[in-house]
Design a protein around this nucleic acid. Structure first.
Lengths: 203, 203
DNA sequence: TGTACCCGATACATTGGTGTATCGAGAGTG
DNA sequence: CACTCTCGATACACCAATGTATCGGGTACA
């Protein structure tokens, strides 16, 4: 059964409100009450759509990561091949598309920590991360080939890049006014790409 | 004024209880009440020692990172030079000393997210992280020299390693039964060390 | 051993959140 | 246009936590 028009709109507003509240209060401290107030609903609306904040978060996360990967794919597809010749160019392009999103980082970091302590959730998170890496891999391989690099173990590279992304994002956010942090992030990305690939491709 | 004996013991018990409660409930959801109950005190005890949970956490964190760096230094000092000949050896040694601590990771990740959203705290966290990298740097350089590697930019390396540590820790914890995650972590550490150093040293 | 004062206990007034059971407006449907 | 049933609002009963003001036992120190 497809959600009715009314319901779809309700979900949209709840997602939006939840993101704002999670970002402002922290996932752990956000209450159903706050989310509903922000969305302009009573708690009744919430409970007839979700059983818990966890459930709402997972729905948001699925949506958001889908959109993010789509953006990334689009950014890469739109890039002029002539402008992307080296691994560094590619790294900069991807970084620009993915960015360093303060609010989103905080929310996912907190939720991940929460999931690690909640057995059922841990597996769900593991699955999602796996799916993300899985989607990322082929895109990555094909674009690396364009800049003349062959990847021995694409999965390892994808996971390494995700790890570097997470780790450096914190550093960038902790020192938001320091452009050096941003540069170090790009350097590290580049170093990892070079370490996990060998010359050889279309370039 | 040095803390009296009674007070020192109270602090010890509060630290211990706080770590347990933060780990079990999440930093965001932990209450003063819970911490005190676990420690066997009333809230009166808490408020006459700290103004907030933030304050308590910062005290714990300072203590814990001091101890961690001390352990690391000791582990490196104790290692038989004959057994540590390559960058990989060094990486494995450090990894064994630092480890992947579930509870501690969750607690710090949540606190960091919290600090990012709390202006005053963000700077405190930045300072602490800086101090950690600062302490790490000389140790790192001296041991890399032992295994025959020279470091061009020690600070960049230290920060890169911290980022990789953070990023891969999550991955290891999300898939706790997968030894591959652990191996990928070591591989990434090694790749980064090699990328940020050049041959040349005592070896 | 006396005494000053530290520090943890107690009590109080408040606040804000929880989940469920029930109702009825109005969207969806033929 | 009328019928149906979804879904958000309302109301209920309940609990957990907050921070402060005050008290007094016991530690520390001469």
């Amino acid at each position: 059964m497809p959600p009715t028009r009314r319901r779809a709109e309700t979900l949209r507003r709840l997602h939006e409100a939840a993101l704002a509240v999670f970002a402002a209060e922290g996932f752990g401290r956000a209450s159903v009450e706050q989310v509903c107030e922000r969305a302009g609903f009573t708690r009744g609306a919430f409970y007839s759509n979700f059983a818990s904040l966890d459930e709402l978060f997972l729905a948001m996360w699925a949506e958001r990561s889908r959109a993010l990967l789509e953006d990334l794919r689009a950014a890469l597809a739109a890039a002029d091949t002539a402008d992307v010749r080296t691994a560094r160019d590619l790294v900069e392009l991807v970084d620009a598309a993915v960015g360093v999103d303060d609010a989103w980082y905080r929310v996912t970091a907190e939720f991940t920590a929460h999931a690690l302590r909640t057995p059922g959730l841990r597996e769900v998170v593991a699955q999602r991360e796996d799916a993300i890496a899985g989607t990322l891999t082929p895109v990555l391989v094909s674009f690396l080939r364009r800049v003349g690099r062959a990847v021995a173990d694409p999965r390892a590279l994808a996971l390494a890049l995700v790890a570097v992304h997470d780790g450096t994002t914190v550093q960038c956010l902790v020192e938001p006014d320091d452009p050096a942090a941003r540069r170090r992030r790009l350097d590290l990305f580049e170093a990892v790409v070079l370490a996990y690939t060998t010359p050889g491709g279309d370039a």
